[in-house]
Amino acid sequence: MTSAGLSNTLPIIDIAPFLTTDPQDADKRAATAAALHSACVEFGFFYLNLDAYVDRSEAAELARLAKEFFALPQEEKDKLSLKNQDSARGYARLNENVTNGKADAHEGLDLYKPVDKPDKTKPVWGENQWPTVPGFRKKYEIWVEKMKVLGLVVMEAMSIGLGMTREEWAELRSQVDDSFWVMRVIGYPPLPKGHDGFSCGAHKDYGCLTFLYADPTPSALQVFLRRPGTTEADKTGLPSEQGSEKGVWISADPIPGCVVCNIGEMWETWTDGLYRSTLHRVVHRGSNYRVSVPFFFEPNFNALVKPLDAVARTKANEGIDPTPTRKPIVYGDFLVSKVGNNFAVEGKGRYDS
C-alpha cells in the first residue's frame, strides 16, 4: 500500500454478471458496479475480465493479423497512408506520430466509425483504409461490433456505480448508443539501446472508455498512479512526463482473458472531476515486435457531454456545493479540435493533450 493507503496494483473486474439477466446475479452486478466505481476514482485504469464474453483466440488472431500487416514491405503499407484520406484514417509510419513534441517509436493503422457522405477534406470524415491481408477486415469488424456492445454494458454498470436512476441511465445511453468509435492497430519495434524516448509518450485518452488488447509482451505499458505525498521517484531513467504531480509509474502487463480498460476525459466532465483520466505511455525495450489493439468507445458525434445530476446529488448529500465546475462539451467538436491539429500544427500529435 502507498502512504495514502491505496494499492499500486490495478484491480481485475469480471464483467460476467452484466452479461446475464438472472435475478440471482443481482448482488454480483451490484458488486461489479461498486468495483468499477472504486477503480475509476482510485486509478482511472483497471483490467476487465472478458472470458465470459469473447474467446481468447479471437484477440490472439487480431495480433497475428496485425503482425502480418506490419511485416509487409513499406511501400505496401504506404498505400494506406493517412494523406490518402482525412489525415485521421489510415496508416502512419514509424516515428510519424508525435506526442509531447517527440516522435513516437511505433507505426499504426487508425480506423473510425464509418460516416454518411464521406468527405476526406473534413477532419475524421473520410473512409477507412483496410489492409488486403486475408481475413484482416472481417476479423477486425467482428471485434468492433463486440467492443461496441461491451461499451454499453460497461457504461450501464458504471451508471449503477454512480447511483444513477434508470431514467438517468436511459438519457446517458442515448448519448453513447451510436458511438463514434475509434480503433488503432499499433506496432512497436524494440527501442534501440540507449534510446532516451518512448515507444508512445505519456498522454491521457480524451474520449470515453478504452479497451486495450495487447500481445503478451511484458513491461511495456506504463500507467501513472497519482499518489499525493509519495516520495518514490520514477525509476525508469526516462524524462519526467507527469509534471509536478506526485505518484509512481507502474507496469500494466497483459493478463490472459483480460483487456486493460481506462477512462477518458469525457468521464471527467460527466462526473465533474470525480473520475479522472490517467496518464499512460509505452516503453518497449524488449527484443520482440509488440502489437496492441486499443478500441476507443466514444460518445455519439453530436452528444452533449455535461455533468451528471447523480454526481451533483451525491455532492449535495455530502454537504459539498453541487454546482458543476465542468462546462458541457459537444463530443464531435472536441474530437475535431484534437484530431484537427493534424491539419494546422506542424509537429503536434493527434493524441497530445
Rank of each mutant, 00 (worst) to 15 (best):
T231F: 07
L212I: 07
T236W: 10
L209H: 14
Y213P: 01
T236H: 04
L209Y: 14
A233L: 11
P228V: 02
S219Q: 15
L212P: 01
T210V: 13
Q222R: 13
P218S: 06
R226N: 11
A233P: 01
P218Y: 01
F224P: 06
A214R: 07
A233W: 01
G237W: 07
L225Q: 08
Q222K: 09
T231R: 10
Q222A: 07
T231Y: 04
L209K: 10
T230N: 02
V223D: 07
L238H: 13
Y213Q: 07
A233H: 02
A220V: 01
G229C: 06
R227C: 02
P239M: 03
L238W: 12
F211Y: 12
P216I: 12
V223A: 01
E232D: 10
P216M: 15
F224M: 13
L225H: 04
T231M: 05
G229F: 01
A233K: 07
L225E: 00
F224E: 11
P239L: 08
L221M: 09
F224Q: 06
S219P: 03
L212E: 11
F211Q: 05
P216V: 15
R226P: 01
Q222N: 08
S219K: 13
Y213D: 08
A214P: 03
T210W: 12
Q222P: 08
K235H: 02
T210G: 04
G229T: 11
V223L: 14
F211G: 05
D215W: 07
T236S: 14
T210K: 08
A220C: 07
T231D: 10
P228M: 10
V223T: 06
D215A: 08
T217C: 15
T210A: 03
S219W: 05
F211I: 06
P218G: 11
T230M: 14
R226W: 03
T217R: 11
R227M: 12
G229D: 01
R227Y: 05
P218W: 03
T217E: 15
L238T: 13
R226H: 10
R226A: 10
L238V: 10
L238I: 10
L221K: 03
A220M: 10
G237P: 02
D215P: 00
A214M: 13
F211D: 14
R226M: 12
V223N: 00
R226D: 09
V223C: 03
P216E: 15
L212A: 06
T230W: 13
L212H: 04
E232R: 12
R226I: 14
T236A: 07
L221G: 00
